[in-house]
Amino acid sequence: MTQSSVLEVKNVTKKINNKTIIDQISFSVNRGEIYGFLGPNGAGKTTTIRMIVGLMSLGEGDIIINGTSISKNFEKAMHSVGAIVENPEMYKFLSGYQNLVHYARMIPGISKARILEVTKLIGLEDRIHDKVKRYSLGMRQRLGIAQALLHKPSLLILDEPTNGLDPAGIRELRDYLRQLANEGISTLVSSHLLSEMELMCDRVAIIKEGKIIDVKSLKDSSEHRELQNKVIFEVNQPKKGFDIIKEKFEYKEMKLLENGFVLLLKREEIPKVNQSLVKEEILIYSINSTSKSLEDQFLELTN
């Protein structure tokens, strides 16, 4: 066990009705890291999360949270966990505040001030005394995030937390998770929103049919720069420019367009191409770079 990992999932397998849902999954989340869980529908993200928070038994393997195995001492392990699993279902006949009081009572040491602090954080002060049945989807999601944060957990587990949030809410959540990460709090977050993951996470595990098929680091800038960008140059003399660049850089993946040309480039190569064109007195109207996103890579991997 390494000192810095808050969550360690070790060779976890889960079978339901003899069907293997999760197959030998292993990964670990470091202190202060935002770890993404990315996969198509039915990949097993929620099932993995259910096992981590003790809603489902482990078929095989073990899960260690802050050095404590959940199968040996579940209560101790859960002290440091706050979670949302799928939709955060709240007691609809209670107010948002009463819901929070309810969950606060289940863990010693949560003051009333803390409940109010969390309420403010998620921006529900005005509506917190309304009954939850009168909340919108996004408001329920916010309340779900609040209950996960109540006891200041060192590991947050959020299953599709952006579901139902408006763009401002998503942004706030992202900023807040980053702020928590800076304070040393780790987050495991699953999502379908691939672009969202790119903005939010330090590392992303891509999961498919119950297996982790790839783990990508997004923080590591060298790898980030390695990513090829599809760059479109719009110029006054497409053919001439195309030939010059083709000759000079020997790019294979290059295509002539009606008003320019397109090629695959690393980020730092864009200025060089630009310079060569300028030197040959070709007029450049625009340079458009679309990074080959995680989304493309994800689709490549899972299809």
């Binding site: 579940f74 209560e75 859960m78 799928e86 279902e89 007691y91």
Partner: peptide, 14 residues
């Protein structure tokens, strides 16, 4: 039925 059971069981309580 209401799904709240999962919110109840993920606490540090047996």
């Amino acid at each position: 039925s209401s799904g709240t059971i999962k919110m109840l069981l993920i606490r540090p309580v047996s």
